[in-house]
């Protein structure tokens, strides 16, 4: 049975699109047929981060409005046969997201895909609400920083009360915390909230901690989801997070000081 996962945060700029891309690629690498959909109508970024911006013909809004069918809009990733991207419109805005249209599209996608990832826009308005409405699972992307934590708390509250599952009194959306841009040095210096601080405030299970890494910017700029970069600590952390999501046990890396090898010390942090 296909599972719809929303990647949301409330706060903007914390790593939703990076996470959506990495998670989708991670699931595809594990053999699951996965599609990642951009819900940020008018401010689309997913196509850039996935490296398919030059192949966009039809988009999510076209399909919702019946101007094109799913096959014309879905873009197959060149690196992995299991991975598909569903870009959105850049010229329209979030009013174009009609809930019944979105439902129809998701129902059709569920016939062929194992996982459907919804990359939510920031905020708590129509775009974000539509992205989370049909979710079975949610990944709350949070930076270890007070405003991000406050906004994540808000979006968790909204997920608990305004998702379709909540409205229909069905089993609740399965909510997970993903802490991103974690900088262990700053946490040790007391400049940044720790994992435990955030866990205490948000009270949701921790899916993973993604360390701050320069490789993420490189990944966006080259249109390569960070999990495809073997040298990236963030990429490795995403792979761990995907494994945990699939039910495996993985120790949380990047939250304790690692023993540094001689060459690491010589050349500085990766």
């Amino acid at each position: 049975m296909a599972r719809v996962i929303v990647v949301t945060s409330g706060k903007g700029g914390v790593g939703k699109t990076t996470t959506s891309a990495a998670f989708a690629a991670g699931l595809a690498l594990r053999g699951h047929k996965t599609v990642v959909i951009d819900f940020d109508v008018g401010l689309r970024n997913l196509d850039l981060v996935m490296g398919c911006e030059r192949r966009v013909v039809f988009d999510f809004i076209n399909v919702i409005n019946g101007d094109a069918n799913l096959n014309q809009a879905l873009i197959k990733d060149k690196r992995n046969d299991n991975l598909f991207i569903f870009p959105t419109s850049q010229t329209r805005d979030k009013d174009a997201l009609k809930r019944d249209g979105v439902e129809r599209v998701l129902d059709e996608l569920k016939k062929t895909f194992d996982y459907i990832i919804c990359d939510s826009p920031a905020g708590i308005e129509h775009g974000a609400i539509t992205a989370l409405y049909f979710a079975d699972s949610a990944i709350i992307v949070t930076n270890p920083e007070v405003s991000s934590v406050r906004d994540s708390d808000r979006i968790i509250g909204i997920l608990s009360s305004r998702s379709r599952r909540a409205e229909r009194n069905e089993p609740p959306v399965d909510i997970h915390l993903l802490l991103t841009r974690y900088d262990l040095d700053r946490v040790t210096r007391g400049e940044m909230l720790s994992v435990d601080d955030v866990k205490e405030i948000l009270s949701i299970p921790l899916l993973g901690v993604i360390p701050e890494s320069e490789s993420v910017l490189r990944a966006s700029n080259t249109g390569t989801p960070v999990v495809f970069d073997p040298d990236s600590p963030a990429g490795r952390a995403y792979v761990d997070a995907v494994a945990r999501f699939l039910g495996e046990q993985r120790e949380m890396r990047f939250v304790k000081p690692e023993k540094r090898g001689f060459f690491r010390v010589l050349f500085g942090r990766a």
Partner: peptide, 8 residues
């Protein structure tokens, strides 16, 4: 019995 979230 559930946490009362921000905005609630």
């Amino acid at each position: 019995t559930a946490p009362v979230r921000s905005g609630t």
